[in-house]
Structure formats: C-alpha cells, structure tokens
C-alpha cells in the first residue's frame, strides 16, 4: 500500500491523489498539518523529507519526494495502459518532460499568487500574477493549435499524459490567486475536457464536471 504524506489544500498533493484515483491505486494518506501547524517544517518531518515540503510517498519502503517525480514513478510503475507516461515513445516523453518543467513555472507564479491571497505568503503579487498570465497565454495558444490538429492534450499523444495532470491544478485554482482565465478560451476548454477523464477526483476549490456536460 502506498502511503502519501498529504495536505488536502495543497495543489501538489492533489496531483498525486488525482493520478492515484485515475489509475485506481489505493493509498493511505498521512495528513500533514501544513498550515497553520507548519508540521512540514518540524524536526520529525525532516526525517521524511529534509527539504521540508510535501508531497512525499512511501511505496512499501521506497520513499520519493516532489510531486512531478512521484507522477513519473507512479505512472511508469502502475499505469498498465502505458499512456500517462509513455516510456516507449521518445517524442511524447520529451514533450512530457518539457511541459512538466513548464508546470514548475505555473507553481512559481499561479500557485504562488494563490498562497499570497490564501495564506499571506510574502510574494511580489504583481510579478507572480504577471508571470502566470504570460505562461497561461503560451499554454492557451499551444492548446488552440493542438485543437486545430484534432488533439486534445498538451503533448502530441491522443491521450492525456502526466504533463496535463501536472498543469491542471494550478490552472483550475488560478482564480483563487486572482488570475482570471477569461482571456484563455482554449485553456478553459482543456480544463473542461480534463474533468471528464475517468477516475477524475476533486479537491476543495475544484468542482466536479457538471452532469449536463457532454462526455469526452
């Protein structure tokens, strides 16, 4: 059984919960009192991750930190379809790595804006919001061209990859940080498609797809 060191309001922890839900993996969550308890910075938690951040998984003694690393590991090990992290397709794999790196950028901008508004973190709010809009503009245009090619996801695969999954929470939660998605129609259509994936699950602030919406 996989143990997840988890905080429910963390977008990065949600990425791991989301992939496990999609892959149908059972897990045991150990709640970490990230805020206001600051448990991730405690001496006790430093034994699990000396960097003092979550998520961390422990898969029968194999301990791994960092959400994107965990997505790579879980998909490579447990996704029988081989589509979420297609190790046999160099091009899609390269694109996946590129968009995972891009998702680090949305964490440092859109997600930072959310931490500023929600928890009072000390960021230059104008700078992080501007950074988020720059990245959303790039992603929106990219997705618009993908749609022209008849493709629904960020890579050239017809199936979503962990890159889509890694990007989804920061995009879907952006309004909480005061980053509107009004100007990014292709990005909004992509989030709607993402919500329709089998096994999709929510976190507080992200809503289930409306039942009236057509599948697919």
């Amino acid at each position: 059984m996989i143990t997840l060191y988890d905080w429910e309001l963390s977008a990065n922890c949600y990425k791991v919960r989301l992939l496990m839900s999609i892959l149908g993996l059972d897990h045991h969550a150990v709640p970490v009192d990230f805020y206001p308890g600051w448990e991730h910075k405690s001496a006790e938690f430093a034994k699990i991750n000396p960097l003092g951040h979550i998520p961390v998984i422990d898969d029968d003694g194999y301990v791994l930190r960092d959400s994107h690393a965990i997505l790579v590991y879980l998909a490579a090990r447990y996704d029988k379809s081989g589509r979420w992290y297609p190790v046999d397709d160099p091009e899609v794999l390269g694109e996946t790595a590129s968009w995972l790196l891009f998702a680090e950028g949305t964490t440092n901008t859109a997600s930072a804006a959310r931490l500023y508004v929600n928890l009072g973190y000390d960021f230059d709010i104008d700078a992080v919001r501007a950074g988020a809009h720059r990245l959303f503009g790039v992603l929106d245009e990219h997705l618009w061209f993908r749609e022209r090619e008849g493709l629904d996801w960020v890579t050239s695969s017809p199936h979503p990859t962990i890159a889509d999954l890694a990007l989804f929470p920061d995009v879907a939660l952006s309004e909480e940080g005061g980053v509107s998605r009004e100007d990014y129609p292709a990005l909004r259509r992509w989030t709607d498609r993402f919500r329709q994936i089998d096994g999709f699950t929510v976190m507080p602030g992200i809503f289930a797809p409306s039942r009236a919406a057509p599948p697919g």
Binding site: W7, E8, L9, P31, D33, E39, N118, P204
Partner: peptide, 18 residues
C-alpha cells in the same frame, strides 16, 4: 489528532471559498 480536526474544517471552508 489536531491535524485531523483541522483537515476536516479546512476542506469545508476551502469548498466555500470559490
């Protein structure tokens, strides 16, 4: 534990926020 009590209430208010 404190963290479990907090987790429950945090989930509720975070759903109200949007």
């Amino acid at each position: 534990a404190d963290r479990e009590i907090r987790r429950f209430q945090q989930g509720v208010i975070a759903q109200d926020k949007p």
